[in-house]
Write a protein that binds this DNA or RNA. Sequence first.
DNA 1: TTGGATAGTCCGATTACTTCA
DNA 2: GGTGAAGTAATCGGACTATCC
Length: 294
Amino acid sequence: MGDKNDGLGLSLSLGYATQRNHHQQPSLKLNLMPLASQNKHKKPSWTDLFQSPDRTCDTRLFQRGLDMNRVPAAVADYDDETGVSSPNSTLSSFSGKRSERKQIGEETEAERASCSRGSDDEDGGDASRKKLRLSKEQSSVLEENFKEHNTLNPKEKLALAKQLNLRPRQVEVWFQNRRARTKLKQTEVDCEYLKRFCENLTEENRRLLKEVQELRALKLSPQLYMHMNPPTTLTMCPSCKRVVSSASSSSAAVVSSALAPIASNPQPQRPVPINPWAATPIHHRTFDAPASSS
DNA sequence: TTGGATAGTCCGATTACTTCA
DNA sequence: GGTGAAGTAATCGGACTATCC
């Protein structure tokens, strides 16, 4: 039914490892797996592009991983603790059979019938879409719960609704909208990050091209080489693993050895490419959840 | 065991309302 | 007081899973 995306997808995964594996190394992966195999239940979206091929790190976990809302570790284990296994449905996997669930459904209807919104009034019967502003307390309680886990199981939903004197549906909608806002902000953060990352790469590329040109020029006119300052080059010594800048006084030898024909040296001291990613520090950015107005 | 029906949730997009400058 | 922008509660439709029969 849902597999409409069998083509080769190209996803750029940008994120931190999940809390399940405790590596906090930032990673940027280019993934050429078919999108359908990565997530067969969703149409590809912008966030899918950020999705790790690792199934333990689906979009939500990714959001949590980089997340500005700093979901505590409990979230990662939440599924296990509550028996909620499906990423899609909290109720579907809510333990208990349908007949048992029906009671909850009835409760829900009862709640719907009995609960009005927080304060006054004329909620009942009015078919027109009235927009209800949640009170500050309601918003903050919801926010607290969202920080603990960004999805609700039916029990929690009912309890929250009862506590806040809202309809369960309102609680559910609030969580959905809150997730959407979180995701939107996360996307903005990711875009900004990628933009800067791209700028860094462009700059690095420009620098390297320039360096290549200079090296070629040197090779063509070795007599000039003696009178020129060597270009700035970072070279790593394979044996001692030390990075040597060719701009330093002793660097000419490194440069010349790098330029020397390999045939003349049975154990060529070839420069080891420096990882360009290392030049762009990745900071785990966090920011506060938007204050819900009331 | 298989498959259709049903119920529930999720998400993305959108609408409609509220608040504020 | 009118207005536009921003924020957000609510709705819609499609996709998906779990369960029942």
